[in-house]
């Protein structure tokens, strides 16, 4: 299909979507109105299970099964990207220093990196651990944790990052997180008869040990997301830094 035909098809399809979208939007409740029936129900359900962060309650308690599905998409995407980014036959890994091995990094940048590494990891852990009582949770905290490690790449060299980041360990961590989530679901069946039911005592409002399974699931997701993002980035790093075509490697 040449570009002209493609544009015509899009003009027709996109125009149709635009008309339908405007008609649909005009039939929606007005923006900013106070009529939110699902909000009323989910806030009520979250309060019953002692979960101050209602978004976390929705994600991990009220519709935990959907989150398992979304988590599986994440899992599958990481595996897919890892499979696609394997070194091909024509490429080989280059272990020795090649060209610009030591990058010029300012001392202040290096210092900031070493200060930020523990700080970022701590913030990530905090965001995961308090996901049920404050804004945050496993998804957000996991990304912060994964980012924390890569501060080392900005501050120093790829080799430093590789030392603190054994990829095999994080691959296992990702599987562990996914297994933990599903395992808690099956534990729910065993204890109270329904998948991912909140069968752990919910504790007191706003205390650290509260909200039942929400917090445990947050940790499972936090581990999986942190490990998954690290594995994903490691494969992109390999492509950009380590892999050379067999032919041009010798030069």
């Amino acid at each position: 299909m040449n570009r002209g035909v493609r544009h015509l098809v899009f003009l027709f399809g996109g125009g149709l979507v635009a008309v339908l979208f405007v008609l649909g939007a005009l039939g929606m409740p007005k923006f900013g109105s106070s009529n939110h029936p699902y909000r009323d129900r989910s806030v009520h359900a979250a309060a019953e299970h002692q979960t101050p962060n209602v978004v976390a309650a929705v994600n991990f308690d009220q519709r935990g099964f959907d989150t398992l599905g979304e988590e599986s998409i994440f899992f599958a995407s990481v595996i897919g990207a890892a499979a696609l980014l394997r070194p091909s036959k024509e490429e080989r890994e280059e272990r020795q220093e090649s060209g610009g091995g030591l990058r010029d990094v300012m001392a202040s940048t290096r210092f900031a990196g070493y200060v930020l590494l523990p700080l970022t990891l701590l913030v990530g852990l905090d965001v995961v651990a308090h996901g049920h009582i404050t804004p945050g949770g496993g998804f957000q905290g996991g990304v912060v944790l994964a980012t924390g490690f890569h501060v080392l790449y900005v501050a120093g060299r790829y080799e430093t990052l590789e030392k603190v980041r054994p990829v095999a360990l994080f691959e296992n961590g990702e599987v562990l997180g996914a297994l933990g989530f599903a395992g808690l679901g099956f534990a729910g069946i065993a204890i109270s008869g329904s998948f991912l039911s909140n069968m752990i005592p919910v504790g007191g409002w706003g205390s650290f040990l509260s909200a039942g399974t929400v917090e445990v699931l947050n940790f499972a997701v936090g581990i999986e997301v942190a490990c998954g993002v690290i594995v994903l980035l490691s494969h992109f790093f390999e492509q950009a830094i380590r892999l050379r075509d067999r032919g041009q490697a010798q030069s």
């Binding site: 909000r39 979250a46 101050p52 209602v54 998804f139 409002w205």
Partner: peptide, 23 residues
């Protein structure tokens, strides 16, 4: 839609369901 020990649950918040979906 995030409450605390001092902020008691009320339904006068933005919808948490769509926020969870966005997340």
């Amino acid at each position: 839609p995030v409450f605390g020990s001092t902020k008691k649950p009320s339904t006068n918040v933005v919808d948490p369901v769509v926020q969870a979906l966005t997340l």
